[in-house]
Nucleic acid binder design. Structure first.
Lengths: 245, 245
DNA sequence: TATGTTTATTTAATGGTCCTAAGAGAACTT
DNA sequence: AAGTTCTCTTAGGACCATTAAATAAACATA
């Protein structure tokens, strides 16, 4: 039974990896980003120090793996919400994905903050290949319903001639990068919506708005309504998918 | 000459402090936030290690002082821009302050990123007294022209009855906290504008929008126009104060 | 089954970090 | 001139990331 025993080893390794990542996450949540050190994580899982180097090449790679895990979890959650009602109108699917995003972010503030402002200096980040990929997946989650909406029921877009020339070029490039599924003007609307939503969420999680708000849920919902209006749909059912509804 | 010599000591101390902060900033800009360690800063100014503890109680306080310095510099820059043309209409003064904010952020990305996502865990931050104060000053810079605008030429506000009940309460509290200079509905507009602007800037500096934009200046200008429109003024002179104009 | 290889892990050691403690010497005060 | 305060140094402890060397178990194969 050579194959089976090899398999067992692989399973062991994966279990150890999962335990390591869980420990790192626990440390992050309970003691902040600075507590996620190689030694501390090793101690947490019962290994002593350098043993962890058999699972990750170093601190940065450990951080990267943990980050990727968070990214995946968040993306999966959003996809699940988006696809919960396949027949629903695109705007509703979009709103569901956005609400899932906020729900995850609020329920896992430390993790979301970690994703957004990773302790690894942005410049020193490895190729960014992994991150870029994760970003693409993310983008896709929201782009998909918007592209469908654009196909089935185009929303109002600004007059390209009225746009700044540099911005027009950038939008053209971006439009090409998403396979032309949205023309530049529509991409502009999409990006504006995304920026508002994501920016709002980041500021909430990073406590930049604490001076004014104690509960951002209604603020977020308003932002969502705003986006829906911009995408030219009727206001989405305000009760659908909301915590209190 | 007892008084003068004491004075000399104080001057010496302040010069040393300034040198320390400059060294910390240099390290931040040239080698990233992680390079700003007590020892590294001390080495940079020619002291050896613990000498720095005569100037700051520890790493966190050093970080806090440097952050406060950045905050002050940014705020001063914004105030200067806002008050450059005292007679100008409030919207223009507001736009000038906002442009100054972005100009500083873009010219000092490392510093702005440091302010926004300080390496000190938000939870572990001391009282937040200092930070709260800096935030207030900041708020004031933008609130002042908006309040004046509200006094002289009220901008359209949402119907309070249409707002979420919880949001309405929060806005009432915020309105009170700024001395009622804006009623809750107007405060809502103000906060929305602030959120968009600040969120956009943070995302730019933290490279969250690199996947789509290479030059955010036109995006920012558009946001500014949007805000001006919301504040019910005519579109601000698009050339005034712009880099290219 | 005996031997060699791969894998997982440990201890030891290097050099970096933050920080505290104890003390030397200059500047200031009286 | 003596005492006090300020500034800074050296010495040392605890922690961290990382490498190297050694050990032991699991596995593969002859």
């Amino acid at each position: 039974m050579p194959a089976r025993t090899t398999d067992r080893r692989r399973r062991m390794r994966e279990a150890a990896l999962a335990e390591i990542h869980a420990a790192a996450r626990r440390l992050l949540v309970e003691q902040g980003p600075a507590a996620v050190t190689v030694n501390a994580v090793a101690r947490e899982v019962g290994m002593s120090g350098p043993a962890l180097y058999h699972y990750h090449a170093g601190h940065d790679e450990l951080v990267g793996a943990v980050t990727a895990g968070f990214f995946g979890e968040l993306a999966a959650e959003m996809e699940r919400a988006r696809d919960a009602r396949p027949g629903a109108p695109p705007v509703e699917r979009l709103a569901a994905a956005c609400r899932a995003m906020r729900a995850w972010a609020v329920a896992h503030r430390a993790e979301f903050g970690w994703i957004f402002a990773s302790p690894v200096a942005p410049a020193a980040r490895r190729d960014d290949a992994e991150r870029r990929l994760a970003g693409r997946r993310f983008e896709e989650i929201l782009l998909d319903p918007v592209a469908e909406l654009w196909r089935t029921r185009p929303f109002p877009v600004p007059d390209p001639a009225a746009l700044d020339a540099s911005l027009r070029d950038q939008l053209a490039a971006y439009s090409a990068s998403i396979g032309g599924r949205l023309p530049p003007e529509a991409a502009h609307v999409f990006l504006t919506c995304w920026t508002r939503l994501y920016g709002l969420l980041c500021m909430e999680v990073l406590h930049q708005l604490d001076f004014a708000y104690t509960d951002m849920e209604p603020v977020f919902e308003e932002c969502l309504r705003d986006i829906a209006a911009r995408l030219g749909a009727d206001a989405p059912d305000p009760a659908a998918g909301r915590p209190g509804g």
